[in-house]
Amino acid sequence: MTTHLITAQEVLTVEIEGLQAILEQLTDSETPFSTAFNHALSLIENATGRVIVTGMGKSGHIAKKIAATFASTGEAASFVHPGEASHGDLGMISQDDIVIALSNSGETPELRDVIAYCGRFDIPLIAITSGVKSDLAEAADAVLLLPPVREACEETRAPTTSTTMSLAIGDALAVALLRSKGFTASDFRNFHPGGKLGAALRKVGHFMHGPEVLPLCQHDTPIEKAVQQVSAGGFGCVGVVAPDGELLGIITDGDLRRHFNDSLENKVAADIMTANPKTVTPETLAADALAILSQKRITALFVTRDGKPVGLLHIHDCLSIGVI
């Protein structure tokens, strides 16, 4: 094994130790960290304004990501640079907001004006820090104290393990808040309309083929006519319905091949159809529909409501909008 790989393993091992140390403190609801976490979450839930996340240097980069995570999960959130805050950007923080401040030492000079501003206007302050007796910790309403774990870069003590732990705590707060609010995948899609994630969270009803082009035949349709509809529809299948419109089954190219050597001249669609086919609804997420298509090794799904077909989804439709 090369020296580089050994170093990489050492770095990850140290950072995992940091995450494990936080996890151990969360396994007991009575620990100071668990109590502080619950208090911090309560402060965020009760805030009527935005979540303001701030930090300097490496902590600032982590703060930006935490703010972005909150925003993507439906919570109004912004990053405020502490250096710029001292030169006018404090006005971006309102009395209805809540501030999450990140600083490993808790003594970051650029944060002092933000801390003082929170105290002056009674703005709730959450600290993520290692400095138990620091100015930041002393001023905060809730202190998420990072466990005393060594940095992965021992040569320079550059923020590595500490920033990883801070990021994980931010994620934990955001996801806990999301679940507390009952935030759903559909809500999440509203904040991610583009890219593969947005495509996966689209509902089938938004891009299915509608009822006007559905390949359908009655259960007593002669096989010859059913085959014509399979060919004419362009989807490689035809849905078989009852007189009341309920979907009874599906005939695919595969069904026709399996019955190729049978005597079909006196048979009807119901004789060779696959009964009770797998279906989805217009509210099914695209990612879930594609999973069904892949698992069942089929190329098309009928979309039904109350048992009656209202649309059709082909695997190419999923791929064309970027669902993978």
Rank of each mutant, 00 (worst) to 15 (best):
I16V: 15
G18T: 06
Q20F: 08
I22T: 03
Q25S: 14
T31Y: 15
R50W: 00
G57K: 06
G60E: 09
I62E: 03
I62T: 12
I66H: 03
A67W: 02
F70W: 04
A71N: 01
G74P: 02
G91Q: 02
G91A: 04
S94K: 08
I100S: 04
S103D: 11
S103I: 13
G106A: 03
T108R: 03
F121D: 02
P124G: 05
D141S: 12
V143W: 09
L145T: 10
P147N: 01
E155P: 11
S162E: 12
S162H: 02
I169G: 05
L177E: 03
L178E: 01
L178V: 11
D187E: 13
F191K: 08
G194F: 07
K196G: 00
L197W: 10
K203S: 09
V204F: 07
H206F: 08
P215M: 03
C217F: 01
D220R: 07
K225W: 09
V227D: 04
G233V: 05
V238E: 02
V240R: 03
D244T: 12
G249P: 08
I251Q: 07
T252Y: 06
G254R: 01
T284E: 12
A287H: 13
A291I: 11
I292D: 11
Q295Y: 10
Q295A: 15
R305P: 03
C318G: 06
L319A: 07
S320W: 05
